[in-house]
């Protein structure tokens, strides 16, 4: 574990904590995409199946459990919490799951390192994670006044991806046989998805303005 990887994981964790705190404090999930959260739940479930088959480290196991539990908590609040569910922008959050899930599933069946159930699902989770933020970005674009916390959530998620790229570069230079092309390419695609958002986020921060994304 290198410093970039740890910083990436902590940023990822922080992004989810920011979202949970925001929803809990304001009793509102305005501007949050349930579709993105449910896609993340699918990503985590498919990727963390190895919790049952393979022990890597206590850190690894605990983090996986935290990501699963926190994502399901967010989904539960957005769907069933008495107060929070009323604030969900159902009409705006219209991205269709199948546009993301089906291509990723097909790609994972074709492009994987081993054609087994576990490996295909793991690869599927890598591809799906790369695009799972799209419903959230579309929803942000439709929200006129993006509140700070939702903006920060997406910014932290993007930062986590950027730190993972640094982690891969570091590992590539220090570990002799370290190669994972599918993960790298998906990770780079995933980071590119955020670039446009980063541009407007930093611009609004420098100008001290509220964040809004042009349609």
């Amino acid at each position: 574990m290198n410093i970039f990887r740890l910083a990436g994981d902590m940023t990822h964790l922080l992004s989810i904590i920011v979202l949970l705190l925001k929803m809990n404090a304001t009793r509102s999930c305005r501007g949050v995409s349930l579709k993105t959260q449910e896609l993340y739940a699918v990503v985590f479930v498919c990727r963390y199946l190895d919790l049952f088959t393979n022990f890597i480290s206590l850190y690894n196991t605990v983090m996986k459990l935290i990501f699963l539990a926190s994502t399901f908590t967010i989904i539960y609040w957005m769907r069933f919490h008495k107060v929070i569910r009323v604030t969900y922008d159902r009409e705006q959050d219209t991205f269709r799951y199948q546009f993301l899930v089906l291509p990723c599933l097909v790609l994972a069946m074709v492009l994987n390192s081993e054609f087994t159930v576990m490996e295909v699902l793991w690869t599927f989770s890598i591809y799906l994670e790369a695009v799972a933020i799209l419903p959230q970005l579309v929803l942000l674009q439709r929200t006129n006044n993006i509140d700070n916390l939702t903006g920060n959530y997406v910014f932290l998620l993007g930062s986590y991806r950027a730190l993972y790229i640094l982690n891969w570069i570091y590992r590539f230079m220090t570990e002799p046989n370290y190669r994972q092309y599918l993960v790298w390419i998906s990770g780079i695609v995933q980071t590119i998805v955020y670039i446009d958002f980063f541009y407007y986020y930093i611009k609004s921060w420098r100008n001290n303005e509220k964040l809004s994304l042009p349609a």
């Binding site: 990822h12 890597i56 990501f67 793991w122 370290y178 994972q180």
Partner: peptide, 10 residues
């Protein structure tokens, strides 16, 4: 062992 190393990321 290599397989496990590959999948140690979250």
């Amino acid at each position: 062992k290599e397989e496990a190393e590959e999948k140690d990321e979250l």
